[in-house]
Design a protein around this nucleic acid. Sequence first.
DNA 1: ATCCAGTATAACGCATCGTTATGAAGTTAG
DNA 2: CTAACTTCATAACGATGCGTTATACTGGAT
Lengths: 316, 316
Amino acid sequence: MKLDERHLIQLAAVVKTGGVTEGAALLGLVQPAVSRTLSMLERRVGEPLFVKGRRPLQPTPLGLSLAEHGLAMLAASRKASDLVESFKVGKSGVVRVGGTPFFMDALIARLCAEFQTSHPDVRIDQSYGYFADLRAALRADQIDLAICPIDILDEGSGLEFQQILPGRNVVACRVTHPLLLKRRPQPSHLLDYPWIAPPPGSPLLADLRALLLSLGATEIKIRYTGGSLMSVINYLKSADALTVMPHSVVFAQRKEKTITALPVTIPHPERALAILKRADAPRAPAVDQFAEFVRLGFQDLRHLIKRHEESVIWGL
Amino acid sequence: MKLDERHLIQLAAVVKTGGVTEGAALLGLVQPAVSRTLSMLERRVGEPLFVKGRRPLQPTPLGLSLAEHGLAMLAASRKASDLVESFKVGKSGVVRVGGTPFFMDALIARLCAEFQTSHPDVRIDQSYGYFADLRAALRADQIDLAICPIDILDEGSGLEFQQILPGRNVVACRVTHPLLLKRRPQPSHLLDYPWIAPPPGSPLLADLRALLLSLGATEIKIRYTGGSLMSVINYLKSADALTVMPHSVVFAQRKEKTITALPVTIPHPERALAILKRADAPRAPAVDQFAEFVRLGFQDLRHLIKRHEESVIWGL
DNA sequence: ATCCAGTATAACGCATCGTTATGAAGTTAG
DNA sequence: CTAACTTCATAACGATGCGTTATACTGGAT
């Protein structure tokens, strides 16, 4: 006995409202259509669904039971419609965002939480990676957005990107670090302290290498490595170690007053922190809304970060 | 955004099975039909439901969410179909059965339980009444079956009835009643004991009146009334009282060895215990199955009851 | 590079849907 | 008890969309 789902929904509407006319109105239909549907349904089922010659309409037990199932379908249909609506305006869906570990931990996680106060039904899947991985993941449609530093020269092939911050890296240390006491620290002093190596594969590590080698270090003295941002900060808090970090990460920690940056410039290619998307692929509206939210969030922070950089690094 | 429920079900089938062809097969359809449905759905929703250029087919988050709702509908549809099937063979539904109180309590309740060992999804709504009420209830479609004694002469108008037992009433008492010790009890002795009046409106009460008046009692000595069968039996157990009961009820209690019947014949019109149905109205299959179950149950009991009657009342 | 399985597209017949118009039945009020 | 009203059932019609077969296409495997 195969039953048309639409018929059951109409039955449910009629039983729920207690009348063919009202039931039809509930579904945006007209009475004769529903009336005919009920006749058909009754004929196909072969059993009466309503007791005849009674007004108001009274369903038989079978009619009532079938109507319950119809109601389940009606509810599911309504939910599906609502889902589509909210998806199309970016109020539901999934945002898969990948990015460089320190930056995600320090800045993006917080933004995710803020985003979801206005978009509670959007799920965010975060993952970590560096530019090459992220680009590949974007191309393979494993993530919707990447947030990472890119060399200004790189023109993404088929990738669209929006700059959100300058991508400057700095030398980070705890606020009580002895080097901060010197009026004019010599770059060579940097070699007197232990170093934390940023994650392998990161631009941070490359910059660290370049920096130390430029100072004449024949060999890099690494005392700690492998930890994510929280580990690195906790390590820094308890030792006079140094490491390389995006300036924005140091900025994000300013309120804690535990770490800061040395007034030292690391020579590295000009970079920008950017949001990368695939240019061609269609994106879920929630993805665009999230990207825009992030962009605006950093727009607000931009001058603060700029000021912080000037005061800390350049000592202005 | 109004979505066709059938489309969502097809989407669910495709996502569930992981392929258009298999999904179509699951629904008893053909691949191009489902393929077209998906295209339409995608166009109407305005968002991709599957990631393009991937095999095996991989749904987008939106597609997956919609498919879940479709799955709910598919499940409801399946359940509805099953419900109709089981209803049509009498394996589900509701049986509303009314009957005379003592007979229902003593014999029918047990049969209801037995019936449901083979028909667990059939609900039984029991109610009490006497012939006139029951007939009215049948006509008003408030009950599906009535089980009660009817005068053999009464030809039900528009009612179909099947006799299941002879409807003889007897004088009941406890097994230790003194009258049982007399070899040949005089009818007048009946007036020496207190009586329990059966429920008002019952044939039992009418028979009691007729019996006592025929014995010359100017006034009937009632000491207890108003109780249902369980009360009456418990009263009888504790006193040398007498009352009128259907013989079949006494029979049903034989195993308890607490009450029995006096070898006294009550003069009353010939009656039969019968199952009454409306002849015209369509009945749920479960109703017919239950009626048949009751009929067969009493067919098995008939000769036992007959033997019991002969031995107890006639002392054969 | 070729084959194969699975998917999209096309064209057609038909069931059924939704519509308006109208008749029938049940309910309520006087 | 009749009259008026409401509600449901039926009829006819145009149109949408379904399911079907046939066929072209695309991604993945050998």
